[in-house]
């Protein structure tokens, strides 16, 4: 169906409305005559937006914020746990700083001399085969430092209880040879009694074999042994463990088991000490 073209009357009507529009425009531009209407409309829109936001968006955002703050708290908790574990290791070093270093001056000069920014690098356990640790002779742990590019091969590895081993390979992952691995030998001392403690292949046990003609001083159950520092890897005077069993191998040789004070399973955070 065709549309009827505007008649003379409707043309006049169009002209009339165009004139009215022109008048409106003139009054609005020159006298701001419609500011009241515009302001009323704007205030209505703003109020509606506010109400809409209050009724719909704010409850949703409140719900979202609640869940977010919960996850934030969990993350913060994890971070605090990490800091706490780190402080345990730091405390271990601080409480034995006379063993690691003679005094504060020594610490400072040691750090300055070697351009060390920190005494140890915090590392996290990445892989530890507990089955192998319980049954077999190869005791290794794989850890990863948080932030360091240094070559840490040969560095002692500690946790919050004491020494657990040394780094034998360092790439993206660090391989730690544990004290209990049968390939590991740790020079220890108690009083005047020096001995090389070899890993037993058993959890938390190292074995010391000595010539009883050479070392005539008796070894007692419960006697404490410390690192002697003679191997050039570990610091001197750190408690390694206590004697739990003594055996006579033959006429000239005795051996005794030492139960270590530190276990690699007690924590999943470690400190890799700076080595010289």
């Amino acid at each position: 169906m065709s549309r009827v073209a505007p008649t003379f009357g409707s043309k006049l009507l169009y002209f009339f409305f165009v004139c009215i529009s022109g008048l409106f425009l003139y009054f609005d531009l020159n006298f701001k005559s419609f500011e009241g209407v515009k302001s009323f409309y704007q205030s209505t829109i703003i109020s509606s937006k506010y109400l809409f936001k209050k009724v719909t968006l704010e409850p949703l955002s409140f719900f979202y914020e609640t869940t977010k703050s919960k996850s934030d708290l969990i993350n913060q908790n994890k971070k605090l746990k990490l800091e706490l574990d780190k402080s345990y290791i730091s405390n271990f070093i601080i409480s034995r700083d006379s063993k690691f270093f003679a005094d504060d001056e020594s610490i400072k000069s040691f750090l300055d001399l070697n351009s060390f920014e920190k005494v140890f690098h915090l590392a996290k356990l990445q892989y530890f085969d507990t089955e192998m640790y319980m049954c077999c002779s190869k005791h290794r742990a794989f850890i990863q430092t948080f932030q360091t590019n240094k070559n840490l091969v040969g560095s002692p590895v500690i946790n919050n209880n004491g020494i657990i081993g040394q780094v034998i390979y360092a790439d993206s992952l660090i391989e730690v040879l544990l004290l209990t691995d049968i390939d590991h030998v740790l020079p220890i001392v108690s009083g005047n009694h020096f001995c090389n403690a070899r890993g037993s292949g058993k959890p938390e046990i190292v074995i010391c074999k000595y010539n009883n003609k050479l070392w005539q001083q008796k070894v007692l159950i419960g006697q404490e042994f410390f690192s002697s520092g003679m191997g050039g890897i570990y610091p001197k005077g750190i408690l390694i463990g206590k004697v739990v069993e003594i055996r006579e191998v033959d006429e000239n040789f005795n051996e005794f088991d030492i139960k270590l004070v530190s276990s690699p399973m007690s924590s999943n955070l470690f400190g890799v000490l700076e080595s010289l």
């Binding site: 549309r3 505007p6 043309k11 169009y14 529009s21 409106f24 609005d28 515009k38 409309y41």
Partner: peptide, 27 residues
Amino acid sequence: DLISGSPFGLNAGLFTIMCYAINSYAN
């Protein structure tokens, strides 16, 4: 004009003119 914040009469006039043009040339 009201919802867009334009001066009153601007769109009113232009819309009226456009309406006239389209109606005139509808066929």
